[in-house]
């Protein structure tokens, strides 16, 4: 689909490629838009956020989202697998209760509550984002593994597969699209919460927005908002593409 023979029209209707181009152009080209912002907001002394480069803010933002999502996938996926095994079944109710209850907690409140416990800085943001991302991952891992038809499991065991083999070669591949949907929810929420994490001292793309809001500098707000919105749309489109591949692969 993204082969070399792609026609220009396909390229324009491809949400992922288009978004990626817009994102890279915004991140790299924001400084050259300074005259534009100066014209739009003539009353501002500093029409461009220059305290940090947008490249480094974007990378920091992605690192925070990536690290917390990765931790959540390992922990949440592990917990989801554990409670669907015979020896862990007893903990399933508990895990489901925590996952449903926890998801009614607004992410911004979880983020704020991490500060009294851990202080300011990137650490509380990392912990809060990880905890919050755990919940959809756990929920969908359990749902995905549950959805594997019993006859399929029986025939896999009949073929002489051990429990680990059944898990890795049958259950996880079949559950992968549902698990991926949970990861997608978690990552998209995290992109937004990471932006708000600038209020607790993490350096992310939310920083120009927060600085701009506090100092009535609308140009800063727009610059941060445009990039973070583009980043979220690109990541979502990436998951869309990944989900398509995975569905085709797991149905093979």
């Amino acid at each position: 689909m993204t082969g070399a023979g792609m026609a220009p029209r396909d390229f324009l209707t491809d949400r992922l490629m288009l978004g990626l181009v817009v994102l890279v152009a915004l991140v790299l080209g924001m400084p050259s838009l300074k005259p534009l912002f100066a014209t739009l907001f003539p009353r501002l002394d500093r029409p461009l956020y220059e305290a940090e480069s947008f490249v480094s803010l974007t990378l920091d933002h992605m690192a925070l989202v990536g690290a917390s999502s990765l931790a959540a996938i390992m922990l949440g996926g592990g917990a989801g697998i554990a409670v669907t095994r015979p020896w862990g079944r007893e903990f399933r109710g508990l895990l489901e209760t925590v996952a449903t209850m926890g998801q009614t907690f607004p992410p911004v409140a979880v983020l704020a509550l991490a500060v009294p416990v851990m202080g300011f800085g990137p650490e509380p943001a990392l912990i809060a984002l990880t905890l919050y991302a755990l919940l959809p991952v756990v929920e969908n891992t359990v749902a995905g593994l549950d959805g594997v038809p019993a006859p399929v499991l029986d025939s896999a065991r009949g073929l002489g597969m051990g429990p680990a083999e059944v898990l890795f070669r049958v259950e996880l591949p079949l559950a992968a699209p549902v698990i991926l949907a949970g990861i997608r929810t978690a990552v998209i929420i995290n992109v937004g919460t990471a932006a708000i994490a600038s209020t607790v001292g993490a350096k992310t793309l939310g920083l120009p927005i927060i600085v701009g809001l506090n100092g009535s500098n609308q140009a800063y707000v727009i610059q941060g908002a445009l990039i973070v919105a583009a980043l979220a749309v690109v990541i979502d489109a990436g998951f869309d593409r990944l989900a398509g591949w995975l569905t085709r692969w797991s149905q093979r």
Binding site: V191, V221, A225, V228
Partner: peptide, 12 residues
């Protein structure tokens, strides 16, 4: 998909 803080900012 658009983060809330960005949508608020872009509406301003």
């Amino acid at each position: 998909t658009v983060p809330s803080i960005a949508l608020f900012g872009l509406l301003m």
